[in-house]
């Protein structure tokens, strides 16, 4: 593809969406003409249930296939059509997503799970059966840092609660050092204290250059964390603006927040 010209100022990668549609049966879930995500460091994506937020994220990651349209990653120096790549290639390009529904690897411990995330392809060859030492030496300290920050009931064993699995999912994604991190309800099931820790951790990563696109039902997180908020309804982004503008907009109040919220 051609040299990119749509990346955000400051070298942040952006995701450009054109003509993206997805229907399940006769119900259109996503129908977006044009949308750029990632121009600002943190962008919130809100809307009522069924607005298409999670499906949009899944379409970007190609864990769900779109009916039509393109999704292009522009990192400032080149453009790549994500909509033509396999999911693992998209993650390799630095576009990574946490899961709304708790996901884990049965049988893998917390350490296993995190070492899996950091291991490179050349570490995972069938003949490299003595490679574990290298991976632990290269990434052990970074992993230990996360485990010191976030408390797990059994750090040497398995993640037990839904909250622990949610945290593990987030740490796995952060270890991939994404350019753009898509967060799908990252604080669901977490205590207020851990939620604060998570947001602080994300702020640090954003300051280091990572962009965040976040779907979150805890609107205090959205208002306090986002630079820009996209409001979705019926499969399309119908409003964009800074948190204060979106929060006060009559359409948002009417369709989503309710009159008592502002």
């Amino acid at each position: 593809m051609s040299e990119g010209n749509g990346s955000a100022p400051g070298g942040r990668a952006t995701i450009r969406i054109s003509g993206l549609t997805k229907s399940f049966g006769d119900q259109t879930v996503v129908d977006i003409d044009e949308l750029v995500l990632g121009a600002k460091p943190v962008e919130g994506l809100i809307g009522p249930n069924g607005a298409g937020k999670t499906t949009l994220m899944r379409l970007i990651m190609r864990s769900t296939r779109a009916d039509t349209g393109t999704v292009v990653l522009d990192d400032g120096s080149s453009e790549v059509a994500l909509s033509k790549l396999a999911p693992h290639r998209i993650a390799s390009l630095g576009v990574v997503k946490t899961n709304q529904v708790t996901q884990d690897f049965a049988g893998l411990t917390i350490w296993d799970s995190l070492l899996l995330a950091v291991a490179q392809r050349h570490d995972e060859r069938p003949h490299r059966i003595y490679r574990e030492r290298h991976v632990v030496e290269a990434y052990g300290e970074e992993i230990q840092g996360y485990l010191d920050t976030f408390e797990f009931s059994e750090p040497g064993g398995f993640a037990h609660s839904a909250g622990e699995k949610k945290l593990l999912d987030l740490i796995r994604c952060l270890l991939l050092e994404p350019k753009i991190l898509l967060l799908d309800e990252p604080t669901a099931g977490l205590s207020e204290e851990v939620t604060t820790q998570v947001i602080e951790m994300l702020r640090t990563k954003v300051a280091e250059g990572m962009s965040v696109i976040i779907v979150e039902h805890d609107l205090d997180v959205i208002w306090g964390f986002s630079d820009v908020v996209h409001f979705m309804a019926e499969g399309d982004v119908i409003l964009e603006g800074d948190p204060d503008y979106i929060r006060a907009h009559s359409t948002v109040v009417e369709k989503y927040l309710g009159s008592g919220h502002v």
Binding site: M61, S63, A86, P87, H88, A91, S92, V96, K97, N99, Q103, D104, F105, A106, G107, L108, D112, L115, L116, A117, A119, R121, D123, E124, R125, P126, R128, I129, Y130, R131, E132, V135, R172, L176
Partner: peptide
């Protein structure tokens, strides 16, 4: 293999393919 990154990749592939894909695993 059980004690290697390759073994971990195999286990991840066997237990949760979509999650493994999302972590760059082919």
């Amino acid at each position: 293999v059980h004690r290697s990154p390759y073994g971990r990749l195999l286990i991840a592939t066997g237990t949760n393919e979509p999650l493994a894909r999302s972590l760059r695993k082919p």
